[in-house]
Design a protein around this nucleic acid. Structure first.
Lengths: 226, 226
DNA sequence: TTGACTGAATCAAACGATTGATTAATATTG
DNA sequence: CAATATTAATCAATCGTTTGATTCAGTCAA
């Protein structure tokens, strides 16, 4: 294993944050040691206490730093239509398609692009499933925009349902995608196909079709072609 | 925190396994210590090595023991129909409804029933997302029957799709449910409703309707009432 | 000189593992 | 049957290692 040193032109604090993302994502909070993190950042382990007040502070700041790492594709989407707008329903259907594509894109920024970004998303996925006590506030702030957007779209697409039904639908839409992302390693192990999924665009189309049909929108049924 | 002692009439080996499920589920492999596990089992920590060869062996055996803890509701289902059977399609639709209900039941054996069973399912969920190297074989064996059943049903319900499309559909069906189970704590935090979901039967009906419609089965669309 | 920063050395605490002694139950023998 | 040998199970004590945290002499730009 070659020593995977990070960009030394960045200041030490920043290098520590990136190394922390990598190691925490790979080994979890308890499994990661500040010595290993410091070594990856080519820094001294004492700097963890100096810059962040300790391992916990480093973890919290590393999670926070994910916000700044990349502009979310979802954040760049136009705001969802209001219930009164003309053509709100058609706009909302297109908005849902765009959202699902952006959500998958956000989550699958996978290793090709940036090793650190991929680690950041893996960390987020892990934290959603089992939040570390320290990370809960950061995590809620991170996830809320995603949640709110889908709920806003569903208020137009499923006006007859109650709030809990819309929450269930939101969770089904995001859950299938999040589970796919979080357990991809296991899925590859189980299916015996180490390079699944071969076709990312087909995957996005599947999520769009499955979700729109799942919501029971007559416009989306059948067939799945759209 | 009262000392949560386990049933002392069971032999020590069994008590250690149950305590291991509780502590590993709560803190993960690295976060859990054999001292704490032994203390919960009211046993000596040296017995971990004596009975299981070490912490790793205890972890492996604890995961294995989940098989024996409770008979899976899915395992009790009748076998899925063969593609040639008369009325195979109707049988398969009903089979999918029964499967989803049984799957949710398996996963949500939540704390009311047995604290240890709930911990066991939490551990499975954690392992699916980030498998410990030691646990991969046990985990694959655990998950395969669930996977195979859905794929068998989809071979009847979606005969036109290719294998990868059916795998995607399987993952969407199971993913929404697994994600729901795994991140329930986070969802309650995010939605601000600490007792979500209030209605388990409505949740099951939602998963059934969302999945059948998502698959694009004309019989299931619309409306979701079935 | 001062203040920000560095890093080798070190700390107490917790870790998993091992030891040797002890008990209790079973098997073997006289 | 009684005495002895064998084995599995359990224990307190301790091993060496690793952990996160701390110290402190030293560097370097302002």
């Amino acid at each position: 294993m070659a020593p995977p040193s990070l960009d030394l032109t960045q200041d030490t604090r920043h290098r520590l944050l990136e190394a922390a993302l990598l190691v925490f994502a790979e080994k979890g909070y308890d499994g990661a040691g500040i010595r290993e993190i410091a070594q990856r950042a080519q820094a001294n382990s004492a700097l963890v206490t100096y810059h962040f007040g300790g391992k916990e502070g480093l973890y919290r700041e590393a999670l926070r730093s994910i916000h700044d790492r990349k502009v979310s594709a979802v954040a760049g989407l136009p705001p969802p239509p209001e219930p009164g707008d003309p053509g709100a329903r058609e706009t909302a259907i297109q908005g849902m398609k765009d959202y699902i594509r952006a959500f998958v894109t956000d989550l699958m920024s996978c290793p090709a692009e940036s090793e650190v970004d991929a680690a950041a998303m893996a960390l987020i996925g892990r934290e959603i499933q089992m939040p570390h006590p320290v990370s809960a506030p950061v995590l809620v702030e991170f996830a809320r925009p995603y949640m709110e957007r889908v709920l806003a779209l569903l208020r137009i697409l499923c006006p007859g349902e109650d709030d809990e039904a819309r929450l269930r639908a939101t969770l089904s839409i995001q859950g299938q995608i999040l589970h796919f992302r979080n357990s991809l390693g296991f899925i590859r192990l189980l299916s015996g196909d180490p390079e699944f999924p071969k076709d990312l665009e087909a995957l996005i189309q599947h999520f769009i079709a499955f979700s729109l049909r799942g919501l029971g929108l007559p416009e989306a049924f059948p067939p799945p072609r759209s």
